[in-house]
Design a protein around this nucleic acid. Structure first.
Lengths: 147, 147
DNA sequence: CCTGATATGACAATATGTTGTCATTATGGA
DNA sequence: TCCATAATGACAACATATTGTCATATCAGG
């Protein structure tokens, strides 16, 4: 039955995420960062987004990203710029120091992803990713929410 | 390149896990529980395992599971039983109240998984799960750890 | 029995993330 | 303009999970 297959899929996905977060922390460690900070730094590099917009892009709670962004701002890795469109919602941009740290992380990440990805075909990875994305979309739209 | 496919795969997996945890919290909410407590309750039902063994089975840090287990024990949902093989490592078992709560959760979970699983074939879900499991195995054995 | 390595639970510090609440700022309609 | 609604940041409380440290218990080898 698909329900059982789905349950097994979900359990595996949760465990995998734990491993990936740990791996990301290791990749970010040489730059004095973590997986979560890395995500915010990457969003800051894109630029033109407020904290709330970054939170939505990352699929996280606004307040959690705000706390991280405040820490990164305190460390000088990102900066808040005035937003002509909104007085309160400052735009997040990467500082030079932040860009340097992000560069270190992404260099390590590229090698890491190449090493792990070499054990798979792009088709395998893409197929798995598409299934995960479809599940996510269903969860976002609230399907089967009532159980 | 597979590295890029792998990076996209990893990012999607992390976001999916956030959604799955949130969905699990909703499923466990009527029983006054959360995703994490649910996992410990399910492990307790299997029986014959200490806290440290449960932590290894779930792929979590021993100390985190210990804290959860202590809370569940305080609420009377699990109980610590003497372990003839080890004086300190008590065995975790489910109480009647714990079993009742777990039953409520799993009833809701079964319907939820069936509803979501219906949009996929078992083959799709299994293929995605196998890729995730292979990635996990590589991460556990430390391949490409050095980046 | 003794010793060193390992396993376990206790405790603390920290990181991440959620929910809730509040005041302020935009936004859109009457 | 006025007002209701939504968006945003600030702040707090809580849940989850990791790392580190410590004392004790277990185990393997001599």
């Amino acid at each position: 039955m698909e329900g059982d297959a789905f349950s097994a899929f979900a359990i595996t996905a949760l465990r995998l995420a734990g491993h990936l977060t740990a791996a990301g922390d290791q990749l970010a460690k040489p730059a004095g960062q973590t997986s979560a900070r890395w995500q915010v730094l990457a969003a800051a590099r894109r630029g033109g987004m407020s904290v709330a917009q970054i939170a939505r892009a990352l699929g996280l709670a606004r307040q959690g990203v705000q706390r991280l962004a405040d820490v990164l701002e305190g460390e000088g890795l990102i900066a808040y710029a005035d937003n002509p469109q909104h007085q309160r919602a400052k735009l997040v941009r990467l500082t030079e120091e932040g860009a340097a740290r992000l560069g270190v992380i992404e260099l390590a990440q590229a090698g890491w992803a190449d090493g792990l990805g070499a054990a798979f075909t792009s088709a395998e990875l893409d197929a798995a990713r598409v299934v995960m994305a479809r599940v996510m979309e269903m969860l976002e739209t609230g399907e089967a929410a009532g159980g």
